[in-house]
Simulated scan of single mutants.
Amino acid sequence: MSLKETLLQDMKAAMKEKESGKTKLAVIRMVRSSIRNAEIDGKCELDDVGIGTVIAKEMKQRKESLEDFVKAGRADLAEQIKAEMAVLERYMPGQLSKEEVEAVVRGVMEGMATADLNMGTVMKAVMPHVQGKADGKVISQTVRELLQNRQLRNSIDKRMNRL
Rank of each mutant, 00 (worst) to 15 (best):
T121D: 07
Q141T: 12
M109S: 11
V108P: 05
E64K: 09
I28D: 08
K4S: 08
L146W: 04
H129M: 12
E145P: 01
G50D: 03
V101G: 12
G111K: 00
A26I: 06
A125C: 06
Q141I: 00
L25M: 02
E17G: 09
A115M: 02
V138F: 08
G107V: 09
L147Q: 12
S65M: 04
V105Q: 08
E5R: 15
K158F: 09
I81Y: 11
Q61V: 03
I139S: 08
E45V: 05
E45K: 11
R150C: 03
L66V: 02
L152D: 07
I55W: 04
M85Y: 01
P128E: 03
E89M: 13
P93D: 07
I51Y: 04
K18Q: 08
P128R: 04
I55F: 01
K158E: 11
L146I: 05
A14Y: 01
A72M: 04
S140E: 05
M11Q: 08
S33D: 02
R144K: 15
A38V: 05
A38I: 01
A134Q: 14
I156E: 08
V27A: 05
M30L: 11
Q151V: 00
K124L: 10
R29V: 01
E110F: 09
S20Q: 10
G107L: 09
V108L: 01
P93Q: 13
R36K: 15
T121L: 13
A125G: 06
E19N: 11
R159G: 14
G107T: 11
V87N: 06
T121K: 15
N37Q: 10
V49Q: 09
R150D: 02
V122L: 00
Q61I: 05
T142E: 00
E145F: 00
E145T: 12
I40S: 10
V122Y: 01
V108R: 08
A38Y: 07
G136A: 04
E102K: 12
E67S: 15
A134E: 12
V104G: 13
K133R: 13
H129T: 05
L46S: 01
A86Y: 00
R32Q: 15
S33C: 00
R62F: 15
V31F: 11
E5H: 10
E79P: 07
K82Q: 06
A56R: 05
L96M: 15
A86M: 10
V27M: 11
S20N: 03
K4C: 06
L66T: 03
E64Y: 13
K98F: 09
D47L: 04
L152I: 01
Q151A: 13
G42M: 01
D157E: 14
A72H: 07
E64Q: 15
M1W: 09
K18F: 13
M109N: 10
E145I: 02
D48C: 07
G107H: 11
V105I: 04
M160S: 07
L117N: 12
N118A: 10
N154G: 06
L88M: 15
V130F: 03
V105R: 05
V31K: 07
N161R: 09
G136Y: 06
V104P: 07
G21A: 03
G120F: 08
S65Q: 12
K22Y: 12
A115E: 10
K43T: 10
T23K: 13
F69C: 14
I81F: 01
K16G: 03
A125F: 07
K82L: 09
Q151P: 02
